[in-house]
Simulated scan of single mutants.
Amino acid sequence: MAFFSTRASTRAGSGASVRPLTGTRRSFAALPAVVLLGTAALTACSDPGAAANGEQPETTAARNGVAYNTSPDQQRVRAQKDAALAAKVPELIGRDGKLTVATTAGSIPLSFHATDDKTPIGSELDIAQLVADKLGLELDIQVTSWENWPLKTQSGDFEAVFSNVGVNKDRVKLFDFASYRAAYMGFEAKKSASYDIKGADDISGLRVSVGSGTNQEKILLAWNKELEGKGKPPAVLQYYSSDADTILALSSGRTDLNIAPYPSTVYRENTRDDLKVVGKVNAGWPSETLVAATTLKGNGLAPVITEALNSAIKDGSYAEVLERWGLSGEALPESKTITEATFGSR
């Protein structure tokens, strides 16, 4: 899942680690599912000097009509404090006046570095900002690697995770969720490719780059098991140490496919001339899942975030955020709190 978000996973060095997609993976506690490719950024605030110096926001005009602002001067969509919601924030979380949010920076347009190479920006952080505003809290962004957020959320270092995290049966044992976006994965390939990826048969024998311990990998493992049952060659899994290395391998022909959060594959299709989307799958395949804000199980924060998100949906600020990042097609009509008790009843 989003699906989905960052990792500094078991991929070694700047090259690729390659192995057939067979066998089982390590436990959720060690390395959970969603991937956002990327490296760590250190600061949480945009550069206040950019606009003051007369600089215009840097934008990337995409073929889908979206002008992506990738500068540190984000001029984010903001929301008004809701006093009733602010009063519901658990005391242990609200007493410092901050909402400490983890993200994994690196996957445009979800969570990535601005053009100053240090400011984390993207749709995930814009949505987190709306929630913090509604709750009357200062947004405190902490960039971390994908495999670190579960333990640091359990330890209390992070109060919420906004990083394309998809809800799954393993995660609900440890965390509660407030849904805010549809969750899809995209397959991308060179523009000259003729692939049409819809299921297991379509990846047989191909080299596919994927994040370790991710929902994407779970899908491919299941598809390879299906292929092996048919006596067909499985796909070959390839790991790279960064998003840049992954895309370079794809564009240079060292891999045949990359599977990544769908919004990121759409962004590249619309801003590059050499890549295209060749398939789309729900991040919870064979079931469906959603992207959600992630909080420690039972601490009472997830229901409050759900209410804040629904307030943002109602006042239009949520739709405005998704529109500015080209994600309107993944909007939800309503946020819902998802716990272990309610997971199977969605």
Results as ranks from 00 to 15, higher is better:
E226R: 08
E340W: 14
K276N: 11
P20C: 00
E124F: 12
A79W: 06
V89I: 11
S204W: 04
F3Y: 07
T115V: 11
S287I: 08
G329L: 15
R268I: 13
T246C: 13
T265P: 15
T10S: 07
S46V: 11
A29Y: 07
D256A: 02
G316R: 13
I313V: 13
Q216S: 13
A200T: 09
L309P: 00
A29H: 10
D82R: 15
G205V: 03
T339L: 12
G298R: 00
S241F: 04
S335V: 03
R171S: 05
K134M: 13
L37G: 12
I197H: 10
A260M: 09
K276A: 11
G166K: 01
Q142R: 15
G298M: 02
T43I: 11
L21A: 11
L275K: 04
T265M: 08
A331R: 04
T337Q: 14
K173R: 13
E159D: 08
S71F: 04
A183H: 06
L125W: 01
P261L: 06
G15R: 06
T39C: 00
A79L: 07
S192C: 04
A102S: 14
A29S: 05
T119K: 01
A50N: 09
G15N: 09
W149M: 07
P72F: 02
T22M: 10
S17W: 01
G300T: 03
Q75M: 05
E188D: 05
G199W: 00
V35A: 09
K218E: 01
D117L: 15
D47C: 03
P32D: 07
Q142N: 01
A30Q: 11
A331L: 11
N224C: 06
Q216M: 09
D96S: 10
N310S: 02
P333R: 00
G284T: 15
S192M: 09
T339W: 04
N299S: 02
S192K: 14
G205I: 15
S241I: 06
D157G: 05
E307W: 11
A182R: 08
A52N: 08
K98G: 02
Y318L: 00
L130D: 13
S14E: 14
A189K: 08
L99C: 02
K173C: 03
F187D: 09
I203K: 06
T39M: 02
E330W: 10
S345W: 12
E269C: 08
D116K: 11
N258W: 12
D170G: 09
N215I: 03
I197W: 10
Y68F: 11
P261R: 00
A292Y: 09
D73P: 06
T294E: 14
L206K: 13
K198M: 07
W285K: 03
A292T: 03
G316E: 12
V35K: 13
D96A: 05
P303N: 14
Q74T: 04
T39W: 00
I247E: 14
E269L: 06
T265C: 05
P263E: 15
V143N: 02
D176L: 08
Y68N: 07
P303Y: 13
L85V: 15
A50Y: 15
E307G: 09
L275V: 10
F175T: 05
G122Q: 00
